[in-house]
Amino acid sequence: MPRLDDDHTGTRIKEQRRLARLSQRELAVRIPYSYSWLTQVECGARPASADFTAAVARALRVDVTVLTGQPYVTQLHQDRLADLVRPIREALDLYDLGPDPDLATRAPDRLIAAADTLCEQVRATRLHTAAAALPDTITELTTAAWQTPSTALWQALASTYRTAHDISVKLGYYDLSSVALDRMDWAAHRASDPRLSAVRQYMRALVYFREGEYSIGRRLIGSGQDILGQSDETRESLAVAGQLHLGASVIAARAEDESAVATHIAEASAYAARVGEAADVHWLSFGPTNVAMHSMSAAVEMRHFDDALKQAKQIRPPASLATSRRAHFLIDKARSEMELGRAEASLKSLVAARRAAPEQTRYHPGARETIRGLVHLTRRTPDSLGSMAAWVGM
């Protein structure tokens, strides 16, 4: 078995707990997990799941990234992604400066198409390609929208801000993702597009979901539903409404509210029956397949791993499903398999996630913790698992 590094979520939890002057027993009474569970995570004998880490972060009043160690700078430099972050940050700061008189921009239709291409690249998990092109597209759209304001240009600019959020989250720069969402709201208001504003509230809710602030997440979902009520009933608005229910379902699952989970999944299913597979609507991947995947994710969040795997076996992702969503499903499946002691199946799911979406999988904290769990679970580590552990930096 390879020797894992000592810099992992458990050791960071121990460090922050000591800084807060809490014993293990004192911290354990503040989280919905046992003393034994906490001690195993701290010593590295048990992986720190996303729900566990969020609960500890909330109890210690620190950001989740303090405990996960994100962004994973060493790997980001290896993949030549770290250098792409600052230009995105700078482009996001141009929003209120008006048009740049020295900048030559592409024609509006080409800029709008470029914004859609960026969304497509992120869904295909081509993060390096999207991150490299994003700053120039934001910069040009900012000038174009100020020079010749139109609904279509403001919508496209809001879309690029949403892409900045997506990339920032996947690479672990959560501070930057919050800035991007603020810019998205700013542009959505200028586009007078309540659907975009509702999508932004959905994404804000997931930020609080990651941080373990479930009551705020639920309020943001409610706010998104209220905003969406200002728009006409179209296929687009129905898909956004359904996605809001999916967001609410996983938040309810983390809050261990099974009744609310069932209600939101049922509501989302009703919307999906009306719109079908709607991957083209705001790049949300909404539809019957995504509803099924969220139902399975909710089971994982509630630690109903047997149920999660039963659901996973019934899911047949269509070819049109975004690669990013497919990889997320495989990572959830791998965690359930690992928790049930099915090491070989779990590793197979992780390898499939890596094959489909290498950049997303490498920087996904859940994938990392599952790999760590597998190393401890497996008495004799196969070469493929050792390779995966080294690949993510363990």
Rank of each mutant, 00 (worst) to 15 (best):
R106W: 10
E211I: 06
A279I: 01
R58M: 05
I251K: 05
L60T: 01
G287T: 09
L76Y: 01
E301M: 03
A322Q: 04
Y95D: 13
A279V: 05
H304F: 01
R89V: 11
A107K: 08
K333A: 05
P2R: 01
Q121I: 03
T137P: 02
W283A: 15
A343V: 08
S49L: 02
R12W: 05
S336K: 01
D5E: 07
L127A: 06
G172W: 04
H294G: 04
T11C: 11
R274T: 12
C119E: 13
A57T: 01
G212M: 00
R46H: 10
A28K: 13
Y72K: 02
K313C: 07
R110Y: 09
S349P: 05
T160C: 14
S223T: 15
T139N: 07
I13R: 03
P365K: 00
Q201I: 04
V179P: 08
M296F: 00
G366Y: 00
L27K: 03
L60E: 03
A55D: 06
D109Q: 14
V29G: 07
T361Y: 00
G287W: 06
L284T: 15
A299V: 00
E256W: 08
S324C: 11
W154H: 13
A273V: 08
F329D: 02
R218C: 06
R200V: 15
A198V: 09
G287D: 10
S178A: 15
T323P: 03
L196Q: 15
V392G: 04
F286H: 12
R190H: 15
L27N: 06
S168P: 01
S295M: 08
L134H: 03
